[in-house]
Design a protein around this nucleic acid. Structure first.
Lengths: 354, 354
DNA sequence: CGACGTCATGTAAGCGCTTGCACAAATTCG
DNA sequence: CGAATTTGTGCAAGCGCTTACATGACGTCG
């Protein structure tokens, strides 16, 4: 009795969710076909004003919510954009991500976020997983990664854009030249007359922006015939407490420094705090400069001389690049956002030169 | 010639992506059926060791990446979890989000993030849109929102959990009692002997945690027969600069205060900075306490007395709650994380009482 | 005024995967 | 040693949409 070898058209749907409203229901309620509903909802084809109204009514009445999976499967577009940042704990990336998200939500996109803790291998895994889940575009931070993963994205036709740096070649990017900015920052100190300059950099091994910034400092020194001895350089993760430690280490091991360039504002803030603890006057005895211009940088005492980076703009521009790419519109491969040196209270001529 | 009225089986796929590998391809390469491939990849049915190996080989050889949309459509599960936070600029939420993401990625989930800028109406829209895109669970912040949106989630069978506060009734939540914590914080000041206490709160109209914290302060005062006059209260957004402004306003308009309770550490930091500018000694002339224990709070000078909140733990626990719910495992409706009062340098007995 | 565009809709074929059911083969048991 | 499981696989029916193509109903011209 239970063996109808014919083709028993299995009840209805296998496990269709009970009261879930589908296009077909909306169509029936509006007295049209599913195709028309789809066209009306996506503006993907002509629909008479009258019918459009009826459909909208039906959508509201029934509380219809489209099924993204079905939509994505049929249209080959997920209306989702992914982003992989090192960490959200760094306000820079949080701001960039939030700005991108805002712009994308405006366009009806969903935003997938993943953090790689500055690990490129982890990044590759995350990208794979985002691609598997389905994304129409991807925002990345930094230019350092396994080229294979970019090839993978190209092969799948997923547009991507690198941020917070300018990428070489044909890799799309929106950012700025970290080396040049750091060079300018260090030059500011050199212009003031500093010669004994120490550096607290980020971890250049896993962070190409940190490496570029360090290179910029070296470049500035080189231009004046100076060189950064290994002793005057210390690399630490971007954390306030690390800045404190680093400052202590630098001062203990080094000849009398008159200025310190920090890889970012957190490190600089830590250095500033440690100076406070040690009773070192900034900038009178020691000038300290940071990079990024975080929220607190302008408020603290002494206010920090730093490089201002438009983190939100980076996010918005990256989002817009992808939006353009997805729509088939032309978009510049490289977008440069302008950073600027903000001279505040933490830097001044060295005492001896004063 | 182009009008075959019969049923022309349209070339092949309408616009199947060119070289995209599908289960069928893997199946063919492994010499099995697609069903078996699916079962092997999802461990959703018995597959002999031998065949499993062959399939894994084929997956690697062909570079197969499953199509999430198809998978979601067929299985009714998206393997994605969403989160809606007020903003990522507040390190608290960034940390909670990142912690949740980490836990979820471990389980193979994707993480969708949206920010509502403290607007409940915007939150409703975002939730709708996340639901449309497809999520298996949702993390929310705060308990204040249109109840209809929760009913919507219930109706769609999407489990959710509220964080950073304890929700009433049967709404799942992982957090702590903001009122009680703030009461303890204010009591600390009262215990020290303070009587003239001012408050710089967050915006209580759009932020139920801020409102709860303010209520806690009022409660502590009430217990000692004190009352918070309108003059001694000022509400500002959670920003450093706002804390500065608020401190100034409070001091200008109010009778000699000996202590100020701030709605969070950013506000407290701003207040501290303003004290520095005005030459007010903290804590000698004025005690200032914050809430949240952000990264900088323990480092600044004077180190901030505040309430420590395990932001990352909140994220992890919220993720675990959803994971359990999705798996059909039992999970506690309410999870309380413990917060603690951290007394540092910014609070001391009032000078007059000393 | 009939041959042609145009415009608005409907029809139905998938999108790439999961999974209920059927069934053959390998085990176990009475 | 045949019946009753217990595997391990394959078949094929969808999941809920989008969209190529077909179809009528109307103008519009030559």
């Amino acid at each position: 009795m239970k063996k109808k070898t014919g083709k028993p058209p299995r009840e209805t749907a296998r496990r269709r969710h009970p009261g879930r409203v589908r296009v077909e229901d909306v169509a029936r309620a509006a007295g049209v076909s599913g195709a028309t509903v789809s066209r009306a909802l996506n503006r993907s084809g002509p629909v008479s004003e009258d019918i459009r109204k009826r459909i909208e009514r039906a959508v509201l009445d029934l509380g219809y919510v489209p099924n993204g999976a079905a939509r994505a499967l049929a249209s080959h577009r997920t209306r989702a954009i992914g982003i992989v940042v090192p960490t959200l704990k760094n306000a820079n990336f949080a701001v960039t991500a939030e700005a991108a998200e805002g712009r994308l939500v405006e366009e009806g996109y969903t935003f997938l976020v993943a953090t790689n803790s500055y690990s490129t291998s982890r990044e590759s895994d995350l990208i794979q997983s985002l691609a598997a889940h389905g994304i129409d575009g991807l925002i990345l931070v930094g230019a350092q990664r396994d080229p294979a993963i970019l090839r993978f994205l190209d092969a799948r036709g997923i547009p991507y854009v690198v941020t917070w740096t300018l990428a070489r070649g044909d890799v799309p990017s929106v950012g700025f030249d970290n080396t040049e900015a750091a060079r300018r920052l260090a030059s500011h100190l050199l212009d003031l007359g500093h010669k004994q300059i120490g550096v607290i950099a980020g971890l250049t091994g896993s962070n190409d922006r940190a490496a570029a910034r360090l290179a910029g400092v070296r470049q500035a020194l080189g231009e004046r015939g100076l060189e950064l001895s290994q002793e005057l350089l210390i690399e630490r993760p971007y954390r306030i407490a690390e800045g404190q430690i680093a400052l202590g280490a630098l001062l203990d091991r080094a000849p009398p420094l008159t200025a310190i360039v920090c890889g970012n504002d957190q490190l600089a803030f830590g250095a500033l705090i440690e100076c406070g603890r040690r009773g070192i006057e900034v900038p009178d005895e020691l000038s300290i400069v940071g990079f990024d211009d975080l929220e607190f940088s302008s408020q603290i005492k002494p206010a920090l001389t730093t490089i201002h980076v438009p983190a939100a703009e980076i996010g918005v521009r990256a989002a817009e690049y992808l939006l353009a790419k997805i729509a088939g519109r032309p978009a510049p491969v490289t977008t440069t956002v302008s950073v600027s040196l903000i001279v505040r209270e933490s830097s001044s001529p060295p005492r001896t030169a004063a």
